[in-house]
Amino acid sequence: MRFDSYHPAINLIYFVSAIGLALSFNHPVFVAVSYVCAFAYSVKLNGKKALIFNLCLIPFIVLYSLIYSSYNHFGVTNIRQNFIGNEITLESVIYGLVIGVIAASVIMYMSCVFAVFSSDKVVYLFGKISPKLSLFLSIVLRSAPRIKKYAGRINTAQKGIGMSPSQGSLFMRFKNACRLISVLITWVLENFVESAQSMKCRGYSLKGRTAFSIYRFDNRDRSFVVTIFLLLTITGAGWALDQTGIYYDPKIIMNDVTPLSYLFYAAYAALLLLPMILQIAGELKYKRLINEV
């Protein structure tokens, strides 16, 4: 039901469009929509922790706006002079706020990315570029925890004879730590030789390597693609009709809000909320089915 059960390509399309659009729009309504959607989705995915984190971001938005406006003095609406005699303008404060909010939305989206993209999915997507690249990533993901574990083991072994980095005088500790690192490097090199042999044994150097994945592109993924592209097209039309344009310098100038504008806002919001809506709908349906039984 969660978005991560979809095909990695779908996850990628969604997040690229969501983050790309959030970065390219600076029309206040669109910015607000991205912010609210990112906020809601990250809380839905990561719960209480995300809520606290997102709330902590708000002071930073305000802070950024204050800093921005004290260094940039474009605009015609003066609010007051600061202590060195420069004008603080309404336009620069608002523009600072807009940038701050955009940055916050992107950060919140990134937290969603981390929740949805497992290492498998990243490896898979790289495999589409080059099978060797994805294999390389997979090897790195395998080696890192292994090396860490072995470092722990050497440490324990050295402790058992009183020569670990946590025993003895300060000088001895330092010496012991150096020894540990040097032998760890030897160990890594030594063991990679054997891993390389095992790779060769299974035909690693043959031409025409493929990348296997456990993902399947099914009808659910197809309908998602159709929907998301429909919504993207509508949003794109809004952009073509200049609904997303705005000037902050020297004066805030934007197009009038017409009934049609609401269609564009709605399409953009729907685009961003799509995974969350699908997840909630899935959960509700599941609950209903369970209750019926």
Binding site: S119, D120, V123, P131, L135, S138, I139, L141, R142, R146, N191, E194, S195, S198, M199, R202, G203, Y204, L206, K207, G208, R209, T210, A211, F212, S213, I214
Partner: peptide, 25 residues
């Protein structure tokens, strides 16, 4: 056993040799 395993996931390890042979999905 540790040194022979190349990839990070069980399913990927099972497929490793077959990938090298260039088999299809």
């Amino acid at each position: 056993p540790d040194n022979q395993i190349v990839t990070d996931k069980v399913w990927h390890e099972l497929a490793f040799g077959l990938e090298s042979l260039g088999m299809d999905q």
